[in-house]
């Protein structure tokens, strides 16, 4: 069974100058090194099969850092991150795509990067193309695509990888209404199959629809966590209700 567990996780980004000799000079002159940024500060939560978590907070609150940690793209300074199951991270539109290659070439490359074998890629190729509704555009170079079309391709690959844990970072907003609906249906089905979903978005309605639980962070620290509806209401009101945890 897949799970995601964070125990008192903190992540720090150093702000020291990377110009080694300059730094040496400045520090011998007695200037103190700049304070590091605390991107995440003592975050604890746990997700099991079929559970879904919306991560909310203002820009720079640490939401993307949190997803990067789940995906294993970076490591925490302290605390423990435990992830069981295959992770599919859709953290940015078109990451891993090359704009001089065609949609089909990008599809194969991306499927491989997301962990599919050659056989699985060929088996699912047609399904992915059908889901994306790109049809003949699939053989055009990616630089001719609109943002919406790139989203379609990226998202279609993501849902066909059949990962146990799906991470979405603010990517669904570009698609048109019909495609969004189709994606939502698909994600809800994946949840019923026991997959874990973690979502970052600034669209509260979509988060309410997708996630049962929510985590509100600011400046890396947890402000509130609980049922998605309550946390999103509190976030929009700008304060934590007195009786909430």
């Amino acid at each position: 069974m897949p799970f995601v567990r964070f125990y008192h996780v903190s992540k720090v980004y150093s702000r020291q100058s990377r110009q080694f000799f300059w730094r040496f000079f400045v520090e011998t002159m007695g200037r103190k090194p700049r304070e590091p940024i605390r991107a995440l500060n003592d975050v604890t939560f746990e997700l099991g099969a079929g559970e879904s978590l919306a991560v909310i907070g203002h820009n720079g609150a640490g939401k993307s850092t949190l997803l990067s940690l789940v995906a294993g793209l970076t490591t925490p300074e302290s605390g423990l991150v435990e992830v069981e199951g295959r992770v599919m991270a859709l953290l940015e539109l078109g990451s891993g795509f090359h704009y001089d290659m065609t949609g089909a070439e990008n599809l194969r490359l991306n499927a491989a990067l997301c962990g599919l074998t050659k056989k699985q890629t060929e088996e699912r190729y047609q399904q992915i193309v059908d889901f994306s509704e790109l049809r003949s555009f699939i053989n055009e170079p990616l630089r001719t695509y609109s943002m919406g079309m790139i989203l379609r391709l990226g998202f279609s690959i993501a849902v066909h990888v059949e990962a146990d844990i799906l991470l979405l970072d603010e990517v669904l907003v570009v698609g048109d209404q019909d495609f969004q609906q189709k994606c939502l249906t698909r994600i809800l089905r994946m949840k019923q199959e026991g997959k874990i979903l973690m979502c970052v978005s600034h669209a509260p309605d979509m988060l309410r629809m997708l996630c049962e639980r929510a985590l509100w962070i600011e400046s890396g620290a947890v402000i509130m966590q609980g049922a998605a509806g309550d946390v999103i209401d509190a976030y929009r009101a700008g304060s934590v209700p007195v009786n909430a945890s």
Binding site: M101, R108, L109, A112, L113, G115, T117
Partner: peptide, 24 residues
């Protein structure tokens, strides 16, 4: 990062580099 399809990834990355180099 704990995947078993290195060969397939490698082949795709190589063909990407090779194709892009002289495309157009």
């Amino acid at each position: 990062m704990r995947r078993k399809n290195y060969g397939f990834v490698l082949r795709n990355l190589i063909s990407r580099d090779f194709k892009i180099r002289y495309r157009n």
